[in-house]
């Protein structure tokens, strides 16, 4: 069994989680408090990756960002490589794929704080930024952490999308789930078992540690 695919999976999951923290947190805040028309449509759009089969998402990406499409040519001009068959491409795909898993708990947490809290803090003289960073973000901390962890876990288990756009390049796009799949296809059940077990053990440990601290954190926040 090679350790490289496992390491790659964690790298991908961690990178995706990092970017999703930056993207999903403000998005969740926006969706929670916006009063614009068509909010339901927006929410549906961002929840779409939840419903689409990963292979379909992968296929869309492959065709939409392939070198045949304008987006693909634009992408290549910026990043100097194709979207498919690259680690950066996988990160993009994973952000899209795991977005709802990050947004939903975060949005729930923001919504549970209620509009009144922001109104009160704004009345007391905090500006929008201060309100977000000093009041809302600490208040929704548990939801934000849960969203981040879920996106990490979800990316770790990602398979269909990577299968479609990855190209199984060792060290670049051959993540653990793909490696396990190939072991199984080659009837190398021992290697498949070993890697699956390691993946399971590490994922379980990460999740339990985070949930444990999250519970303590929520107790601290709620007093």
């Amino acid at each position: 069994m090679s350790w490289q695919p496992l390491w790659l999976s964690f790298e991908l999951a961690a990178t995706t989680m990092f970017f999703l923290l930056l993207i999903a947190t403000p998005l969740a805040w926006f969706l929670a408090f916006t009063r614009i028309r068509g909010r339901g449509v927006l929410e549906a759009v961002f929840a779409l990756p939840l419903v689409l089969p990963p292979t379909v998402l992968g296929y869309f990406l492959l065709v939409a960002i392939g070198s045949r499409s304008p987006i693909g040519q634009w992408y290549q001009a910026i990043f100097g490589s194709t979207f498919a068959f690259s680690f950066v491409g996988l990160v993009f795909a994973s952000i899209l794929y795991s977005l709802p898993f990050a947004v939903q708990p975060m949005q729930n947490a923001f919504e549970s704080l209620g509009r009144e809290l922001s109104e009160a803090s704004r009345t007391l003289g905090l500006n929008a930024w201060q309100n977000f960073f000093r009041i809302l973000l600490p208040g929704a901390r548990v939801g934000v952490v849960t969203g981040a962890v879920l996106s990490f876990a979800h990316t770790l288990g990602e398979f269909g999308v990577v299968l479609m756009i990855g190209g199984s390049i060792p060290g670049k796009t051959k993540v653990a789930s793909i490696a396990i799949y190939e072991y199984v296809e080659n009837l190398e059940y021992h290697a498949a078992n070993a890697m699956a077990l390691v993946l399971l053990a590490i994922s379980f440990t990460v999740l339990s540690v985070v949930y444990y601290y999250n519970r303590r954190l929520s107790r601290m926040v709620l007093g």
Binding site: G72, T82, G167
Partner: peptide
Amino acid sequence: FLFVRSRNA
């Protein structure tokens, strides 16, 4: 085939 057809490869 799809990789080539979609011009990713």
